[in-house]
Design a protein around this nucleic acid. Structure first.
Lengths: 190, 190
DNA sequence: AATAAAGCTTACTGATCAGTAAGTTTAGGT
DNA sequence: ACCTAAACTTACTGATCAGTAAGCTTTATT
């Protein structure tokens, strides 16, 4: 049951860090939402920074699992999966709780590259590009690495654009652009 | 000379807000850098929030003027200007002081769309897309609005990607993708 | 029933934070 | 030289902040 309390604290921290920002969230608010107290929180987490890193790792794990499952449930072929990425992103953006990408937001709040918070954020996108790159390679793209970066840029751009102005249709625009880029990468040289 | 003091405060606030984040910057740090005191700061700005909005408006004005001048100095034709956008963004990212886009960062720190800080940020990108859209129209794109959004997404994506990992070549990748999208928009239907 | 561990309560440290009050000093204008 | 306005200094309010200490209560185990 002790693990349960730690998970409750982490869940509460995750909700508040994502919805209102890391620096805007104090420890008091987290323990209040978790229904516990500061002594207990510091029993499980050595510091707020450690809690933030745990939040990002949990977010990485939870989001990645959900995301890949969503893409897999919508498409079979690698090329279709590449396009499905944008549909999944588009649906994700529609939820009222959407507040952008936790990793992009965290990296913005913690600008120093040496900071573990910033590093965890960068790692998430390294893995994201690797995922796209693998799909790109499987559907025979000439330069899977290049296509992976391009599609990742469109995803990231769509996310921050939508965060700035909701219901902007950013994902649909990104998907249209992605279609062109994918087609170009799959077209044999004349 | 009074105006000079207000500008000094705003300049100090701008440097600190951009380099370390808005919520991470206290009023004491700003007046220290500006070489003045809190009473004087509050003589010119009613609150920290008003100072933040002033920072973003100044950033909009300064950055936009610099950006357009940079694009204009590198290219004459609308199509070349569209591509030059990515070269300018690429050079901007190389400076050591680069900390991403002030507006994207501000919108992340102030998630509520009703917040003036968030609104000023969204307006900046509205104008940015309008600028690209005008260029797209002038070079005969079939759907200038669509191309404007697509290129804007690439720019935004490149910015946050580079902010997360420096020297990633994000701008060059974005430019390559932009070239394809521009070519597609300018190609007559068969 | 007894014990030990987990979790909680109350109070605290030391610091920072936005913002303000009242009096003093400095600078500019006449 | 005098006056006024601008700017500064010192001290403050009320609050929040991360993190900790000591003692108490609850829960689980034996």
């Amino acid at each position: 049951m002790a693990k349960n309390l730690q998970q409750r604290i982490l869940q509460a921290a995750s909700e508040l860090f994502y919805s209102q920002g890391i620096k805007a969230t104090g420890i008091d608010a987290i323990v209040k939402l978790a229904g516990t107290n500061k002594m207990t929180l510091y029993n499980y987490f050595a510091s707020k920074d450690e809690l933030v890193v745990a939040f990002l790792r949990k977010r990485d794990s939870d989001f990645t699992a959900w995301f890949v499952a969503q893409v897999d449930s919508r498409a079979e072929q690698p090329k279709d999966k590449l396009l499905a990425i944008f549909d999944v992103i588009g649906d994700w953006m529609e939820i009222p709780e959407f507040r952008g990408c936790a990793f992009i937001n965290a990296a913005a709040e913690f600008p120093l590259e040496g900071n573990p918070v910033h590093q965890v954020s960068a790692e998430f996108y390294d893995q994201f590009r690797a995922y796209i790159g693998e799909l790109a390679a499987r559907c025979g793209a000439r330069e899977p690495g290049n296509l992976a970066v391009q599609l990742s840029l469109l995803v990231e751009g769509a996310i921050v654009s939508e965060q700035m102005k909701r219901h902007s249709g950013a994902a649909a625009h990104a998907k249209r652009a992605a279609s062109v880029l994918i087609a170009t990468e799959l077209t044999p040289f004349p």
